[in-house]
């Protein structure tokens, strides 16, 4: 029970911790302070609680596919926020100053939404033990250990990033956020396939022999890249299209940014 709790909570916390550490590492550059992050985390926890409490009702919506609908909308919104954030992060420092409010929203929105989704799962898991006749203590201890490991990994990534020079850090963060965002978009497609909103086709490949999804590396790659051993064709298409959109956005933004600077 203890080990199961550690694994479940670690998986969920790791996804939020990775995203938060990447975003927080460029927070100072944009002018976002600690209390903004604290507010986003607090909002995320509140929404997670509300979502978990209303999950029985939500699940029954749209012919019992409400959970997939809501989660995929959350995931798509996270992708859009991150994509816009990455593109605008390529602005020059002067323009960045004018975009401060927008950048703050684009940065904190994914944290709030990711925490809403992952946090609600943790709440439901722990809460179910309080209503059952199984021992609660190992679950609580396991959850604390899992959270601490996840948060430690997040802190490690954060401090490793802020020790890098700004230019290098921005490049790493943009690349890491781009693949994370596309992984999240791919997960949204997986949910729409599960709800039969999109028609299912056989998996494009099966790499479970080389890298099992439930292995430690598989889980880590799932959190970073959205790795799946047996992805549906639509997931791969959306991943590639999502990545191309971000790259195109960055190129266009840089082109018009430099053109405007020349015009001025």
């Amino acid at each position: 029970m203890l080990l199961t709790a550690i694994i479940i909570v670690l998986r969920e916390v790791l996804e939020i911790a990775l995203l938060t550490s990447l975003l927080a590492s460029v927070g100072k550059y944009i002018g976002i302070r600690f209390h903004h992050f604290a507010l986003a985390l607090l909002s995320g926890i509140t929404f997670a609680y509300l979502y978990a409490k209303n999950l029985p009702t939500i699940s029954e919506l749209f012919d019992y596919t409400g959970q997939e609908w809501i989660n995929s909308i959350l995931q798509i919104t996270i992708y859009v926020s991150l994509a816009c954030f990455i593109i605008l992060l390529c602005s020059n420092p002067h323009r960045m100053n004018n975009l401060k409010r927008l950048m703050m929203c684009l940065m904190l929105m994914p944290i709030v939404l990711a925490l809403t989704r992952e946090g609600s799962e943790i709440y439901i898991y722990i809460d179910s033990f309080f209503h059952g006749n199984r021992p609660v203590f190992p679950v609580v201890v396991g959850s604390i250990i899992g959270s601490c490991i996840g948060l430690s990994i997040g802190a490690l990534i954060y401090y490793a990033l802020i020790s890098c020079p700004l230019e290098k850090r921005l490049t790493i963060v943009k690349c890491a956020l781009a693949v994370t965002a596309c992984g999240i978009l791919s997960q949204a497609v997986s949910l729409l396939l599960q709800a039969d909103v999109l028609h299912s086709y056989p998996a494009l490949w099966n790499s479970s022999e080389y890298l099992a999804e439930d292995s430690a590396i598989g889980q880590l790659l799932y959190a970073i890249l959205g790795y799946e051993a047996t992805p549906a064709p639509q997931q791969v298409i959306v991943y590639v299209v999502g990545l191309l959109l971000i790259i195109s956005g960055v190129v266009i933004h840089k082109y018009y940014g430099s053109k405007r600077a020349i015009d001025v």
């Binding site: 999950l55 699940s59 959970q67 997939e68 799962e121 439901i124 997986s190 396939l193 599960q194 998996a203 479970s208 099992a212 999804e213 439930d214 799946e228 051993a229 047996t230 992805p231 549906a232």
Partner: peptide
């Protein structure tokens, strides 16, 4: 993992 499915009941 094999079915790519995950849902809270």
């Amino acid at each position: 993992y094999e079915l790519n499915r995950e849902k809270i009941i």
